[in-house]
Measured scan of single mutants.
Amino acid sequence: DIIVVALYDYEAIHHEDLSFQKGDQMVVLEESGEWWKARSLATRKEGYIPSNYVARVDS
């Protein structure tokens, strides 16, 4: 799995977006363009995230 960590807070604009806080970790489910589908490890919610707001966690 690709794990990313939030670099900034993000408040969902559309209902399919995923809100998150700086430091939150998410599993990337699908990478396509600038918006990635991800699942929050904390809340288990899924939605689209702006890929420029996150960084990959080296395992």
Score class of each variant (00 low, 15 high):
residue 1 D to I: 14
residue 1 D to Q: 14
residue 1 D to M: 14
residue 1 D to S: 12
residue 2 I to N: 11
residue 2 I to G: 06
residue 2 I to R: 11
residue 3 I to R: 07
residue 3 I to W: 08
residue 3 I to Y: 10
residue 3 I to C: 07
residue 4 V to H: 05
residue 4 V to Y: 12
residue 4 V to D: 00
residue 4 V to T: 02
residue 4 V to S: 02
residue 5 V to K: 05
residue 5 V to Q: 07
residue 5 V to M: 08
residue 5 V to F: 08
residue 5 V to G: 01
residue 6 A to R: 00
residue 6 A to V: 02
residue 6 A to T: 02
residue 7 L to G: 01
residue 7 L to M: 08
residue 7 L to C: 10
residue 8 Y to K: 10
residue 8 Y to I: 07
residue 8 Y to P: 00
residue 8 Y to A: 09
residue 8 Y to H: 09
residue 9 D to E: 05
residue 9 D to R: 05
residue 10 Y to S: 02
residue 10 Y to R: 06
residue 10 Y to I: 02
residue 10 Y to E: 00
residue 11 E to I: 15
residue 11 E to V: 15
residue 11 E to H: 12
residue 12 A to K: 06
residue 12 A to H: 02
residue 12 A to T: 04
residue 12 A to M: 04
residue 12 A to L: 02
residue 13 I to S: 10
residue 13 I to D: 08
residue 14 H to E: 07
residue 14 H to K: 10
residue 14 H to D: 09
residue 15 H to G: 11
residue 15 H to S: 14
residue 15 H to C: 13
residue 15 H to T: 13
residue 15 H to V: 14
residue 15 H to W: 13
residue 16 E to W: 15
residue 16 E to T: 13
residue 16 E to A: 11
residue 17 D to E: 15
residue 17 D to Y: 14
residue 17 D to L: 09
residue 17 D to K: 08
residue 18 L to C: 02
residue 18 L to N: 01
residue 18 L to V: 03
residue 18 L to D: 00
residue 18 L to G: 01
residue 18 L to R: 01
residue 19 S to W: 04
residue 19 S to P: 07
residue 19 S to F: 04
residue 19 S to K: 04
residue 19 S to C: 06
residue 20 F to Q: 00
residue 20 F to V: 03
residue 20 F to E: 00
residue 20 F to Y: 01
residue 20 F to W: 01
residue 21 Q to M: 11
residue 21 Q to P: 02
residue 21 Q to Y: 10
residue 21 Q to F: 11
residue 22 K to E: 07
residue 22 K to S: 07
residue 23 G to H: 04
residue 23 G to V: 01
residue 23 G to P: 00
residue 24 D to T: 06
residue 24 D to M: 05
residue 24 D to Y: 02
residue 24 D to S: 05
residue 24 D to W: 04
residue 24 D to C: 04
residue 25 Q to R: 15
residue 25 Q to P: 05
residue 25 Q to M: 15
residue 25 Q to T: 12
residue 26 M to L: 13
residue 27 V to M: 10
residue 27 V to G: 02
residue 27 V to Y: 09
residue 27 V to E: 09
residue 28 V to M: 04
residue 28 V to E: 00
residue 28 V to L: 13
residue 28 V to N: 02
residue 28 V to T: 03
residue 28 V to C: 05
residue 29 L to E: 04
residue 29 L to H: 04
residue 29 L to N: 03
residue 29 L to Y: 07
residue 29 L to A: 03
residue 29 L to W: 06
residue 29 L to T: 07
residue 30 E to P: 03
residue 30 E to A: 09
residue 31 E to Y: 14
residue 31 E to T: 14
residue 31 E to W: 15
residue 31 E to S: 15
residue 32 S to W: 12
residue 32 S to L: 13
residue 32 S to M: 13
residue 32 S to G: 14
residue 32 S to E: 11
residue 32 S to I: 13
residue 33 G to E: 06
residue 33 G to R: 05
residue 33 G to L: 04
residue 33 G to H: 06
residue 33 G to S: 06
residue 33 G to A: 06
residue 34 E to W: 15
residue 34 E to Q: 12
residue 34 E to D: 13
residue 34 E to C: 15
residue 35 W to G: 04
residue 36 W to F: 12
residue 36 W to L: 13
residue 37 K to C: 12
residue 37 K to S: 05
residue 38 A to C: 12
residue 38 A to D: 00
residue 38 A to H: 01
residue 38 A to T: 04
residue 39 R to N: 02
residue 39 R to S: 04
residue 39 R to Q: 08
residue 41 L to R: 05
residue 42 A to S: 12
residue 42 A to V: 14
residue 42 A to C: 11
residue 43 T to E: 05
residue 43 T to K: 04
residue 43 T to Q: 05
residue 44 R to D: 13
residue 44 R to G: 15
residue 45 K to C: 11
residue 45 K to A: 10
residue 45 K to V: 08
residue 45 K to S: 08
residue 45 K to F: 07
residue 46 E to A: 07
residue 46 E to H: 06
residue 46 E to P: 02
residue 46 E to V: 13
residue 46 E to K: 05
residue 47 G to D: 00
residue 47 G to N: 00
residue 48 Y to N: 09
residue 48 Y to W: 15
residue 48 Y to V: 06
residue 49 I to V: 08
residue 49 I to A: 01
residue 49 I to P: 01
residue 49 I to L: 04
residue 50 P to K: 07
residue 50 P to V: 02
residue 50 P to T: 03
residue 50 P to I: 03
residue 51 S to I: 08
residue 51 S to Y: 10
residue 52 N to M: 10
residue 52 N to E: 10
residue 52 N to I: 09
residue 52 N to Q: 11
residue 52 N to P: 05
residue 52 N to T: 11
residue 52 N to R: 12
residue 53 Y to K: 08
residue 53 Y to C: 09
residue 53 Y to V: 04
residue 53 Y to Q: 06
residue 53 Y to A: 10
residue 53 Y to R: 08
residue 54 V to H: 01
residue 54 V to W: 02
residue 54 V to K: 01
residue 55 A to F: 08
residue 55 A to P: 01
residue 56 R to H: 09
residue 56 R to C: 08
residue 56 R to W: 09
residue 56 R to T: 08
residue 56 R to A: 08
residue 56 R to F: 12
residue 57 V to K: 08
residue 57 V to W: 09
residue 57 V to N: 06
residue 57 V to Q: 08
residue 58 D to V: 12
residue 58 D to R: 09
residue 58 D to T: 13
residue 58 D to S: 12
residue 58 D to L: 11
residue 58 D to Q: 11
residue 59 S to Q: 13
residue 59 S to A: 13
residue 59 S to V: 13
residue 59 S to D: 11
residue 59 S to E: 12
